[in-house]
Design a protein around this nucleic acid. Structure first.
Lengths: 177, 177
DNA sequence: ATGGCCATGTAAGATGTTACATGATTTA
DNA sequence: TAAATCATGTAACATCTTACATGGCCAT
């Protein structure tokens, strides 16, 4: 079984959860998520579904809504196995420190003129605080609405944002000394 | 000024910090980092340096160590401007919730047979705890050795890992009820 | 009926990965 | 001096992005 990319795994998981679904319905999930990790672009999703189907992980049936042609994709038993094999065993990169563009940038703060460094930090903290509100609201919405795991994932995002804020506070303190 | 990728920005930042450097020296930084965000593969780095040079952000001089040919790259003034423009203004994706493969997987835990879900969590927590030790040690090492920002970045990584552990604990509690 | 958004795509390109090739240098 | 590893690359490929194309559907 060839390895699945993160996006492929997530798409497979969504098809599993949502039952028969059109690529567009899956796209919407990414488009509507406050996390910018995937663009949900058509150019990623439609070819991806064809790949998955060619590999036997999903199966599709034609499904016209009105006179617009479309395809409904369903997980095959093979696809469920693929999804589970993607989930576990947990790959090394899933355990390691995840990538964080903000952390990466802070590493090179020394390249900014000394007078702009404090500004970088206050702007970052300000924008993170604003973002925190969005994430918190998304978390509450998912607690009410969606399934258990959807909420727990959003909760994880919330804790991650909080941790970044606490870190930035520490950084500000360390640099203002 | 065309946008720089995360890797390009980081490489530019490293060249800024390390002074004239060979591509291999830069690779080593990625190769030796405990964060698996970039492979530091030759196939990424060498073409990247040529791109940066073609765009005038770095300049290179031949530099033979013994009888092995090599190139030493230096940041140009234009490159410093590019680096600063990459740092600030902070892009949207740098503020948003960063991608996390573990969080993504947990979202689809429901696809695992019910009996395996607790195991997923205990394994994840176990491996994260082990990883925490590595990250903590890396953090201490950088506090002693490197520059201020290098340490602060490692500190951010440490806090991120801790936050993930706290989250997983919460998840375990929520699911065992 | 028509102007705008919805939904389904395709095309071109950027960026990164793995795998391989090659010769220099160190080590047993 | 032979084997291993270092250092510099190149080649083929996968995946994702942005930008575009096309036609259905809906509100005014």
């Amino acid at each position: 079984m060839a390895k699945l990319s993160e996006l492929e795994g997530a798409v497979l998981g969504l098809v599993h959860d949502m039952g028969p679904a059109t690529p567009y319905a899956i796209r919407r999930v990414f488009l509507d998520s406050p996390a910018p990790q995937w663009s949900g672009s058509a150019g990623a999703i439609y070819p991806l579904f064809r790949r998955l189907e060619r590999r036997g992980l999903v199966r599709s049936e034609a499904s016209a809504t009105g006179r617009r042609a479309s395809r409904l994709y369903t997980l095959t038993p093979e696809g469920l196995r693929g999804l589970r094999g993607w989930l576990v065993p947990l790959p090394h990169e899933a355990v390691g420190v995840p990538m964080d563009p903000l952390r990466t940038r802070l590493r090179f703060l020394g390249a900014l003129p000394a007078g702009q460094r404090a500004g970088f930090l206050t702007e970052a903290r300000q924008r993170l605080r604003e973002h925190l509100r969005v994430v918190r609201e998304d978390c509450l919405r998912r607690r009410r609405g969606g399934d258990r795991y959807d909420y727990l994932m959003a909760r994880g995002a919330l804790l991650a944002v909080r941790a970044r804020l606490a870190w930035l506070k520490e950084v500000s303190a360390a640099l203002s000394r």
